[in-house]
């Protein structure tokens, strides 16, 4: 095997393994999604197609409930669209890195572009160059397979499971995001972004806004950006004053 191929394999394995803690954190949610579909009278095929094709967390869960309650197709699709709209931000943020990739890799990364993969690709260098793309792709596939597996367990266990939503199992998801976000707060603008996003996401959630997450995120991004502008402005003023005195 050539050195290049070996390096690729190593990166793929590393991506796959690095995603494992995030895979573990969504075990309860995956099982819940699978079992809920069965409890809401989905056929096994339909329940399987949800993680296989739709491959989403919140959107899958909400859609399952909506379908079960005979909501109109328009309502279901609109709700899924709103919940998924945060992905537009991911696509935009990664656009310049990924738009030049060959079609299959681009489609592949897009298909597995979840919150978790985006979280894992926060670093400036992430997904730059062939090896890092392979790493990201492997991490995304790792999460896809994990999610599928947890769903299947939920489908098999089906109605034997108690209502998992009341057990507080969602804490593990919060914990992984804390683990990924907090260490990246290295500058004041990022701190501003995080604080604004934290406050607004809670306020909007309490107001029952459908676009709570996206609205909070966009306003927080603007605040982070503006504080960066302010910071650079003050730095240049400081420098000028420094050179005068």
């Amino acid at each position: 095997m050539s050195i290049k191929k070996q390096a690729m394999k190593k990166m793929a394995l590393k991506g796959f393994v690095d995603m494992l803690p995030l895979n573990l954190a969504v075990i309860p949610w995956g099982i819940l999604c699978g079992s809920l579909a069965i409890q809401r009278d989905f056929s096994v095929l339909e329940a399987l197609l949800m993680p296989l094709l739709v491959f989403a967390g919140a959107a899958q869960l909400v859609a399952t409930e909506l379908i079960a309650s005979n909501a109109s197709m328009a309502t279901i699709l609109f709700t899924v669209f709103i919940i998924s709209s945060r992905h537009f931000l991911y696509g935009l943020a990664l656009r310049d890195k990924l738009k030049t990739l060959p079609l299959t890799k681009r489609l592949g990364i897009a298909f597995v572009l979840t919150d978790e993969l985006f979280a894992l690709s926060m670093h400036k260098k992430s997904l730059r160059g062939k090896l890092r793309v392979v790493y990201g792709l492997a991490a995304g596939i790792s999460f896809y397979l994990g999610w599928l597996l947890w769903n299947v367990i939920g489908i098999i266990a089906g109605s034997y499971l108690p209502d998992l939503t009341s057990l507080g199992l969602d804490f593990a998801i919060a914990a992984t995001f804390i683990a990924l976000v907090i260490p990246t707060i290295t500058t004041i603008p990022i701190l501003v972004t995080v604080v604004v996003a934290a406050i607004l996401s809670v306020v909007f959630k309490l107001w029952h806004w459908q676009l709570d997450l996206v609205a909070a995120a966009i306003i927080a991004m603007v605040c982070g950006y503006l504080s960066l502008q302010l910071q650079t402005k003050f730095k240049t003023i400081d420098k000028r004053q420094g050179s005068v005195s």
Partner: peptide
């Protein structure tokens, strides 16, 4: 400018996901 703005998307979105899980 837009790229610089988008650099803040990860901390913004991910925070907006985990904070409500804890507080609401």
């Amino acid at each position: 400018q837009m790229s610089s703005l988008l650099n803040f998307s990860a901390p913004a979105v991910l925070t907006a996901i985990w904070v409500p899980i804890i507080f609401v």
